[in-house]
Design a protein around this nucleic acid. Structure first.
Length: 321
DNA sequence: GGAGCCAGCCCAACCCATTG
DNA sequence: CAATGGGTTGGGCTGGCTCC
């Protein structure tokens, strides 16, 4: 009997490894600064308020661990993706607690499985559990304050004899869980997301993915707003420098980025999906085809009406949605 | 004063040869 | 296959330098 089979029996909710897990993340989290972008320990809190003052986010660190980083968030993306997959498979009771092995998790988020990989995984779990968040997003009531972390609990098991890492159990905090199971709260990240090595790069992609989405004309954001949305600790002038390199490289998955001037002439970045033109053309084609087939169907209907066949032919309305 | 630029620091991520 | 740790790379950020 293989080790794997034993593990599967141990964990009723054992999550099998999948190579092509569609990556999902919460749109509300993607567009706001919730994570540290630096590889160095960040203790300075993230204090964010949206331009209209409606949305605010406060993230603070436990001094022992620092604020959870945008790389630590990969674990949350993994968990979100797993739960979403279960939902799409038609499961009714979606778990808040997931079981896996450290190896499988590290592989899934495209991380090294060396000794340091495991130590770093533990550090990531510590940061995710110990980072405290307050936000108006999904606040239950007005004048209510609530504080939570990303994870409620994590348990790392190691082999009693060899000390080798074995099982991992993690429980999402209620706020995260509610966001995952809520309808239409998730967006798909490109499969290359984990390959993005830069923290700012990742933050920018997440924001572009959320805002530019599939819009035919793309989306423009002022640099200063982008700076706030990423939560970067660098001063604006340094952020400018980092941003310039990202825009010049134009290497983000899915989106083209270019510098433009905003309506008030301040510097801004325009994001547009690379295949936006293609997609628009395909949509138009589909709409035209659908319209044609509808017309033909109506003509057919006249000829077929005698047989009463038309009733059985359900023609989809034209266009998407 | 401040905008732009960038070397250097620190450290996590990554690469890889090696081991049961 | 799973795990290890030595070595290297490259990231954000700090702080300094230049030029306006």
């Amino acid at each position: 009997m293989s080790k794997r089979t034993i593990r599967q029996q141990e964990f009723d909710l054992f999550v099998p490894r999948m190579n092509s897990l569609p990556l999902k993340d919460q749109r509300e989290v993607m567009e706001r600064p919730f994570f540290s972008l630096s590889k160095r320990k960040r203790l300075k809190p993230i204090e964010y308020t949206s331009p209209d003052g409606e949305v605010w986010v406060h993230v603070s660190a436990n001094p022992a661990f620092g604020i959870a980083t945008i790389w630590d968030a990969d674990i949350l993306i993994w968990a979100t993706s797993r739960i979403n997959q279960m939902r799409e498979a038609g499961e009714n009771d979606l778990p808040r607690t997931l079981h896996t092995t450290t190896y499988d998790l590290l592989k899934a988020i495209k991380r090294d499985t060396g000794g340091k990989g495991y130590r770093e995984l533990q550090a990531a779990l510590q940061r995710l559990e110990a980072t405290t968040i307050q936000t108006s997003i999904r606040g239950t009531k007005r004048n209510t304050k609530a504080q939570f972390g990303w994870l409620d609990e994590w348990i790392l098991e190691s082999d009693a004899v060899t000390g080798a890492p074995k099982g991992l159990t993690l429980t999402l905090s209620n706020w995260v869980y509610e966001g995952v199971i809520k309808d239409r709260s998730l967006l798909t990240l490109h499969a290359d997301y984990f390959a993005l090595s830069g923290g700012v790069e990742r933050a920018i992609y997440r924001i572009a993915r959320k805002h530019a989405g599939d819009q035919a004309s793309g989306w423009t954001c002022r640099v200063s707003v982008l700076h706030d949305k990423t939560g970067s600790e660098s001063p604006l002038k340094q952020f400018n420098y980092l941003l310039k390199r990202i825009v010049a490289a134009n290497d983000l998955p899915e989106y083209d980025a270019s510098f433009v001037n905003a309506a008030d002439n301040s510097p801004a970045v325009h994001f547009i999906r690379r295949d936006a033109a293609e997609r628009a053309a395909i949509k138009a084609d589909l709409a035209r085809l659908a319209a044609n087939s509808e017309r033909r169907t109506r003509e057919d209907a006249r000829t077929l009406a005698v047989d009463g066949l038309f009733e059985k032919r359900k023609v989809k309305p034209s266009g998407e949605r």
